[in-house]
Write a protein that binds this DNA or RNA. Sequence first.
DNA 1: AATATCCGCAACCGCTCCGAC
DNA 2: CGTCGGAGCGGTTGCGGATAT
Length: 340
Amino acid sequence: MGRPPCCDKTNVKRGLWTPEEDAKILAYVANHGIGNWTLVPKIAGLNRCGKSCRLRWTNYLRPDLKHDGFTPQEEELIITLHAAIGSRWSLIAKRLPGRTDNDVKNYWNTKLRKKLMKMGIDPVTHKPVSQVLSDLGSISSLTTITTQNQMNFVNNNSILEHPKEEQVQYHHQFTNQESFQQQYVLNEVASSTSSSCSSNLTRLNSPISYSCKTSQAQVNPNFDWSEFLHNDEPFIWSEIQQIQQCDIQRVMSSLSLGLLPNEGEVSNINNNYNRNGNDKQGGSSEGFDAVACVASKQYEMNKQSEGNSFSGNEFVDGILDKDSEIRATFPEFLDASFDY
DNA sequence: AATATCCGCAACCGCTCCGAC
DNA sequence: CGTCGGAGCGGTTGCGGATAT
């Protein structure tokens, strides 16, 4: 049995909002504040679904919203955050004052995605299309599963026609991803819950699995994480915490070098965060939020240090020193795949 | 000037999450 | 512990204006 509709869809008005309807929402919010949107149509005298009222308010009427075009800085930040956390529009929008998730999503779909494709960059992986194609070749040699989306992308976007130079300009950002991904083998996942992702990338020598495309981390079915934790003591927890610290620093140093972390790397961080006290069914956004926070913070720092290479280098050196220190302490958890 | 096509954006849909009971 | 229902999210649709033919 499905869930009953939130309102009588046949009797509510749909489509564009009139200024009169907007005025009613504004008057309602001024008098009652925000909350319980299902009551809003009744109290405000609107023949609309409560959900529709909430959307109208959050996406258009909120007084703190910007209605002008996106600046190049905002554009850059969206690309950075999308590379770090994927299409988590609400999290990205949180880093852009005055912008809604809908704004960011629309801007990405109508402008930024096309812009990247024009440059020969795959907007999903943020990798040069030539590399995506070669990866696809490797994948098909290991597994017969190839998603329709991947084929559609190849077929629809004339990607092979893009000048090599444009791809190269962006390609430097991914040099560390290649070595990272060489540490992974494809692991077909038979789970029915992962139907949206035909394959997973599983890290060698690690109990943690990485999702290649799914939004939520998935666990290697052969490994019982809780057993791993329960058999050990606080030492393990402190190691996990330090790995998290290292993950964040790795992302930060990558960003400071103009590199973008790949999804596997971000997924790793999220796995760590979600397991360390945030182990909820279906995962948690906190890991993503943490990465989004780091990415946007680093973006701001990069902006500030532009034109001042000394402070930027100092920062990077500090990160690299710290990273070396942690690598020396926990060699078993850190392979050579993250060499800068 | 008329028509076709493209593009951007607002709005909707269906789903998940999460708190209350 | 299971159910219910509101809130929020990401993907998709469709309208209306802009541009091309």
